[in-house]
Design a protein around this nucleic acid. Structure first.
Lengths: 198, 198
DNA sequence: GTCTATAGGCAGATAGAC
DNA sequence: GTCTATCTGCCTATAGAC
C-alpha cells in the first residue's frame, strides 16, 4: 500500500468527510485546502468546480455502497442476516460521526445542482431495489414475514435507518441508533423470540 | 383576523419556509428581504442576527408543535389514534413540500450556533417523551403490543417519520411517506387487521 | 420601522507564473 | 500540479438619515 494517496483521492476524502458532517452548503474549498495544506487554486485543477466535486463525491460513494451490498450478498445467504449486515453499513458511518452522504444531500436537495439531485435519487432507488429483492427472498423462503408490498417495506427500512442516523447525531446516541435498527428489523422476522404463548 | 400580520411574524414565516426547504445554511437575509419586499437592514431591526432569528424560529416551531400534541391528546383518547394523529402532523409538513424544521437542523447540526443546537436536541427529547407516554398507555390498556422499552419504540417512530420525510422529498413521493408511516404504526397494533387466516 | 450606503469577510472561480 | 494574485459576487452586519 502506498504511503500517500494521490491528491484527487485526498480531496475526495476530505470533501466527503466535510459533506457528511457539515453538509454541502456547510463546507467550502477553503476548508479542504487548509486541511490538505494546498491552495484553493490547486483544487480547481482536480475538480473544476464545487458542483463537479459534488458529482464525483456521490459517484464514488454510490459505487462503494454498491460494492458493499455485493459483499453482503456473498457473505450472507439468508435474508435476515443480509438485512442485519445492511443496517451495519449505516452503523459504521454513524460510528465515524458522519451522516449518510446521500441522507445529508437529501436534506439539502432543493439547493443542489441538477446532476447531483439526480444521482441522489438514484442512490435511494438502488438501495430500495436491493432491499426489495432481499425482502422478496425472505418472504419466499419463509424467513421473513410482513404485510404489504416488499417495496414499501424496503422504503421503510431505508427511511428508518436514515432517520435514525439523522436523530442519533445531535443526540450523540449510537446505542439509540442500534435500538431503532433492531426494532425495525426484528419486526420482520418470522421467528420472533417469544411474543405470544408457545 | 387581520389582513396583514406584523413584520416580525412575516419574517418568521418566510424564514421558516426557507429553512424547511433549503436549510439554515441554504438561505440568507437577502432571500427573506426580497420575498417581503423590504431591505436586509430592516430585518436586523427585528432580529439582530441570523443566529437569533434561528433561535426564535425553533422556539416558535417547538411551541406550535407542543400545542399540536396537546390537541392530539384531547381529540383522541386511545393510543393507536394518537399515534396516527402524530404521524399526520408530519404528513401535513411534507404536503407543504417542507422538511420538519428540526429534522433539517439535525442534518446541519454541526454547523449551528450552540443555542440552536441545544433547542434542536430538546425538540427531539420532548417528542420522545410524549410518544413514550402514549406507548405506555397503549401497552397498559392492551391497544398496543411491542417488545422492548417504550422509549426505544418512541425513538423508532420519530426516526422513522423524520427519515421518511427526508427520503420522500427528493423522490417527490408523499404516498411513500404514508406507506412508511402506516407500516411503522400498524406493527405496534395489537389488533392487526387480518394477517393470518380468519 | 424602514431606508441608503457601506463595511469587512468569505464564497467560488480564473489568469498566468513556475 | 501547485502557486500567487486577483476578480466578482454574496454574505452578515452596522451607521446614520428619514
Amino acid at each position: 500500500m502506498q504511503v500517500k494517496e494521490d491528491t484527487a483521492t485526498q480531496i475526495l476524502d476530505a470533501a466527503e468527510r466535510l459533506v457528511q458532517s457539515r453538509g454541502f452548503n456547510g463546507f467550502s474549498y477553503a476548508h479542504i485546502a487548509s486541511e490538505l495544506q494546498i491552495t484553493k487554486a490547486a483544487l480547481h485543477y482536480h475538480f473544476s468546480g464545487k458542483a463537479e466535486l459534488g458529482e464525483a463525491l456521490i459517484a464514488r460513494y454510490a459505487a462503494r455502497f454498491a460494492d458493499a451490498l455485493e459483499n453482503v450478498g456473498s457473505q450472507f445467504k439468508d435474508a435476515p442476516s443480509r438485512l442485519n449486515a445492511y443496517a451495519d453499513l449505516y452503523l459504521e458511518v454513524l460510528r465515524n460521526k458522519r451522516m449518510c452522504l446521500c441522507g445529508m444531500l437529501a436534506a439539502e436537495y432543493q439547493t443542489l445542482p441538477a446532476p447531483m439531485q439526480n444521482t441522489v435519487v438514484q442512490f435511494f432507488a438502488d438501495n430500495e431495489t436491493w432491499l426489495t429483492r432481499v425482502l422478496e427472498q425472505g418472504q419466499s423462503d419463509g424467513t421473513l414475514e410482513f404485510e404489504g408490498p416488499p417495496s414499501e417495506v424496503a422504503r421503510m427500512i431505508v427511511s428508518g435507518l436514515e432517520g435514525a442516523m439523522l436523530v442519533a447525531r445531535p443526540l450523540d446516541d449510537v446505542a439509540g441508533f442500534q435500538a431503532v435498527a433492531h426494532h425495525l428489523l426484528t419486526g420482520l422476522r418470522r421467528t420472533s423470540p417469544d411474543t405470544s404463548q408457545s
